[in-house]
Structures are given as structure tokens and as C-alpha cells.
Design a protein around this nucleic acid. Structure first.
Lengths: 333, 333
DNA sequence: AATGGGCATGAATACGTATGTAATAGAGTG
DNA sequence: CACTCTATTACATACGTATTCATGCCCATT
């Protein structure tokens, strides 16, 4: 049905290996032979089978990205990763993070990809162990996994937490609430650590009633904000573990008839593009996410090419305060 | 290094084909033999190579999704497609739409995927031809391609255009502008057809100066809105080719100090989740996008399994008006 | 007890490419 | 003219699995 290198060889009157060599630019093939082969290949619209090639070379030139597709950040990092990989000749297979045992991860273990990009690994996940045990290269993006020590690219999440808290502190806020993230994610834990540290340094208490724990998404922000605002003593400022949570909180505030920042201040962390839009105008802490994603992809390819030292490489990207319109000075009650 | 079926066979004291049969549930293998093989496989943590399997069976159980990763809808449809494919045992490789010649599409042509999901094909693209010529099954999602007649899943985009226009018409608007989409995309063209049809039926002129053509994204909406509002006779209501464009327009309006809908009405098409948020509250026309995506994935798998008739299957999904807060009755000038 | 049938398994091979090794032809050198 | 060396190509094989066919075995039937 579809042409193989054998068909090309027959048409060009040479052997199959010669076709293989000619099309891959092996200098040991005569110009004349090369021409005949190219002609035959075009005539048959021959495309080398990546499958056969992979089986022979033991390299697929394909990388898996494991992502939590419900995470609002993945649309930001996925294109960056895709393009960085494509630029270096690698393809991408996408795998959603599974809640269950991990039986769905076989594509990662059966050598159908050369490496793995773990973008959203829960800390207790067994997957990094499995990959490590099989010697499959991996890079963790924006989360560091539990015990396994692998290449990783992260933002300075502790500093991001500090920065977010300080934006409110320097505006004079003391009645502060926190829409926190899951304890399973290092990103969330690190940010919370920074937040609590900055608050403690400023002698500002964070009452446990004013901490609502949720996930990274918009819904968590909406629900958490409603919970905080229904407290007997609602906070006058809310730190959100992510921009999506913060935008959810903005929406809840709008729905509750609260003015931001007059009635309540809100800050986020991430600086997704939406945060800069006039209708959000969210004060937040910027992470260079697309840049980090690109970095991770290139790191993985470098690892696959074997041009990295044996020790795990860790890249930590700096963060930056992005004060905008959703926080302001605390007014006296 | 990594265990193969031969290693398992050796350890279990059987031949390689028996291992293959046993692990795939072939009933011709004794329970005792099966047990020994399972034991050996576990001991070696054997995972069958999908590569070897694919080469032998000529089926990869993998599907490619070709998407324009800059299109703001893909985060909505990608998870739906991924999950639908996963539920039926198919993996996904992601390919960004290329502007250039199409040399980057070789993964689609070299039999490393069983089928292709075209989510954002420009009309003149040569890719559908190529795929058709090679007999690679494909399904087009939300856009119908030029000449090639393939399986497709679309929304009733003409009706969506009509519906959007009618929301403004029935509110009494006559001074209407249009933020149109690219003429290369059938989605865009169909919607515009419906819009113009509804306006013509209501004897409402659409001046060409009030039509700004752009892409589907937020930036187009922002830029287009500014252009419309700077006209000598700016429209009092703007129909946007997509929700992202509409939200861009909302942001431009906010930035320009215009009140929506008091000063200008805005309607979109798509009903992305964000449109329902209080900070947007966008009047729009709902497309069942995740449902369509799931439908397309299942259609492709059905096609791959050969359980569909030879003629192309076309699914057209209905649309629904979602009147919210960004349009209101026209006030006399 | 001989034979036929069914069942479990092994041997051989195919899938498409890449690569190591052998072979052939041509050219250059003595 | 013979020999060697090199350039070019063919041959054989490997990669990991699935499948077709052949083989051997046991049991039932006559």
C-alpha cells in the first residue's frame, strides 16, 4: 500500500540499505545514485517510517509531556514546550496526569518516548521512581518531586510567596486572608511558605480561619472567596496561591457586590496574560512561565543528547512583582 | 538493558511467541504457563514495546491532533479529545499547525499515527489532500476543509452568526459593527455569512468601514475595537467573530472608558467558560465545544475500527443563544 | 491397541529501517 | 600487467512483537 525503502530501492535499481544511506545524506553514496534514489522516492512519495527507524536506532525522537489538563497554566506552557521541542527535531505526545494507580503510563515505560517532561507531578507520585528505575530521562517543570533527584526547572516559588505578601504588607494591610493550594504540590507549599514567612517577619498574624485550602483553578478562588467574605471578621486583603484563584476571587467579589480594591484587595501569583487585561488588572507576581517551559524542553533534549553532566541540573528562575490595580492601602475600619 | 519478551520467555522457560500470547490473553495458553509467564514478567518489570507491536500489527493506537496552539479554543477541546481517546485506548500526539510548506507534517504521513484530528485547518491547506491520498483517516473538527470530503464535526456556524446578529437586532440596534475573522477559516466565513444574512433580513446595513477583519484572538478584538471606536460614526453595537475577540473588545472598551452595554453593546460567539464569569458577563452564542471534541475523537476511533460506512460522516451540532449582560437596547442618539 | 482429533507450544517469518561486514569495480602504482 | 587501495554498493542481520504454520502430545474413540 504505502511505499517502503525497499520499493524505492527496486525502482532505483539499488539495494535497500543504499536507499537508507542516500536519503540520510551518507557521503558514501555517489551523486548519480543519490539522484536516482531521490527521483524514485519522489515518484513513490516515499516517507521513511519513523517506526522502523525507531526500532532500529532505539531512539524515537519523541518526548512525553505529562500534564494536569485541568491546570489553568498548561495552555501557557504547552505551546512553548511544543515549539522548543519541534525546533530541535523532537515530537510530543501528551499524557494527562492520572489520579489512579498509574496503569495509564505505559507509553512512558515501553520506550515509545525518549524522555519525559513532568509538568504537574503530585509529590507522592510513583511515576518519577518508575522512570528513574528504568533510566528514562525526565525533567520536572515548576514542581520538584519527592525523593527522586532529577533535572528540574522551577521558579523561585518561596520568593514569589514573599513578594505577594509584601505587596499587601507595604500597603499597610494587616487583616489578611489566604486562598491556599493543595499540600500535594510543591509549588503550592513553597509559595505558602514564603507568604507565611513574610507575614511573620512583619508581625502580622494569619488566622487559620482565614486560610481556605483548595486547588489551583478558578472555581477554588470563587468558592474560597465566598467563604472568606462570609466570616464574621472577613479579611481586608486576600493572597491567592495562583492567578486563576485570584481571578475566581475577583469574580466572587464582583458577584457579591464588593469593590476591588476599595472593599477588599486581591493579589495573585503567576501573571498569566489575562491578569494584565483591563477587566482584571490583577496585582500579581510574575513567573517567566513560557521561558521556563522552553528551558525545560531544551534541558530535556540536552539530557537526551548526553551533553549534560551526570548530576541533576536545577534551574531556578527569578520572579517579579507586578503591582496593578487590585490592591491598595488598607483603610481604617 | 530493558527486558524484552525474549527475556521473559527465557526466564519462564517458554518461547517468545508464547509470552506474546499469554500476556495478551490468548485462550490457547495453559493457566499454569500463563502463571509462570506473568511471574517472570513481573520479576523483570516487563512492559511490551509499543514500537515492536506497532511494527508488527501496522497499528499504532495513536492519533495526531493538529491544532493552532494560538487559537484560544484549544485549551477547551484538547482535554476533551485526550480523554475521549484515552477512554478508547488511543494515545495522542500533538502537532502545531505550520504556516509553511508542510514539511513538518511527516509524523502524520509516515504511519506513526493511525489517524489525524484536524482541528484548525486553513481552507487552502494541502494537508487534507495528502492524508486523503495516503488513505490516512481524518476527522475535521469545527472547520470543513476545501475540496476534500472527509468526516467532520462542526457547529452550525451560519446559525450561530444569525443568532448573534439577532440578539442585537431584537434589542433595536441598527448601528452595528463587525469584528470579523480570517477568510481562510470556514468557521469564520460561515459565521459571517449568518451575520450578514440576519442583518439583511432586518434591512440593517453593514457598512464596510464598520467591518474590521482580524484573527480569532484577544489581540484582534482589542485592536479592532479601538479601530471601530475611532470612526467618525462608531457603531453602537459590535458583533465579534469569537468570544476571545469579544473579550478583547471588552477590554478595549474598558480601557477607552466606555461603558458596556450603556455606551456600546458587544456580543460574541463560542461561549467559552470565561464568558460566563461575572467580570465578563458576555452575551454570546454557545457552541457545545467539549461535546463536539469528544464526538470528533469518537468518530475518528470508529473510523479506525472500520465500523463506519464508506461515505464521510458529518455531524452538525446545534448552537444556542446565551444572552447575558453585554448587550442592551439601543438608545436614541 | 491403533488412529484421529484437539490442544498447547515452538519454529519461522514479517513488519521497515539502520548498520557492520563483505564484495566488487575502478583507479592508481610499481 | 599484477597488485593494492579506495570508493561504492550489496548482503546479512538486528531491533521487539505478532502471526502463520508445523510439531508433538495426550486423550478419546473404535
Amino acid at each position: 500500500m504505502v511505499a517502503t525503502s525497499r520499493d524505492v530501492a527496486r525502482l532505483a535499481g539499488v539495494s535497500q540499505p543504499t536507499v537508507s544511506r542516500a536519503l540520510r545524506g551518507d557521503p558514501r553514496v555517489t551523486a548519480e545514485t543519490r539522484r536516482r534514489i531521490a527521483e524514485a522516492a519522489t515518484a513513490l512519495s516515499y516517507v521513511p517510517s519513523q517506526m522502523g527507524r525507531s526500532l532500529s536506532t532505539q531512539a524515537t525522537h519523541r518526548v512525553a509531556m505529562v500534564a494536569d489538563l485541568a491546570n489553568p497554566l498548561y495552555p501557557l506552557i504547552l505551546p512553548a514546550i511544543h515549539d522548543a521541542l519541534a525546533a530541535r527535531g523532537y515530537g510530543m505526545v501528551l499524557l494527562a496526569e492520572r489520579e489512579e494507580d498509574g496503569s495509564g503510563y505505559s507509553p512512558l515505560l515501553d520506550r515509545s518516548v525518549d524522555g519525559v517532561l513532568l509538568t504537574t507531578t503530585r509529590r507522592e507520585s510513583a511515576l518519577p521512581f518508575e522512570l528513574h528505575g528504568r533510566g528514562i530521562p525526565m525533567v520536572m517543570l515548576n514542581r520538584v518531586g519527592g525523593m527522586v533527584d532529577s533535572d528540574s526547572v522551577v521558579a523561585d516559588n518561596v520568593e514569589a510567596g514573599r513578594t505577594a505578601a509584601r505587596m499587601l504588607i507595604s500597603a499597610g494591610h494587616r487583616e489578611i486572608g489566604l486562598l491556599a493550594g493543595p499540600v500535594e504540590a510543591s509549588t503550592s507549599v513553597d509559595r505558602e511558605t514564603g507568604i507565611r514567612e513574610a507575614l511573620a517577619d512583619a508581625d502580622i498574624p494569619l488566622r487559620s480561619a482565614r486560610v481556605v485550602r483548595g486547588w489551583f483553578g478558578h472555581g477554588s478562588g470563587d468558592a474560597g472567596m465566598r467563604k472568606l467574605m462570609s466570616l464574621e471578621q472577613p479579611p481586608r486583603a486576600v493572597i491567592c496561591i495562583s492567578d486563576s484563584v485570584a481571578i475566581g476571587a475577583l469574580n466572587a467579589a464582583r458577584d457579591l457586590g464588593l469593590r476591588v480594591p476599595a472593599d477588599v484587595s486581591i493579589v495573585g501569583i503567576d501573571d498569566v496574560p489575562m491578569s494584565g487585561w483591563p477587566i482584571c488588572n490583577l496585582s500579581t507576581v510574575a513567573l517567566p512561565l513560557p521561558h521556563m517551559a522552553e528551558d525545560a524542553a531544551n534541558l530535556l533534549v540536552d539530557r537526551l543528547l548526553g551533553i549534560l553532566p551526570d548530576e541533576p541540573v536545577r534551574h531556578i528562575h527569578p520572579v517579579q512583582a507586578m503591582p496593578r490595580g487590585t490592591h491598595s492601602s488598607s483603610t481604617q475600619i
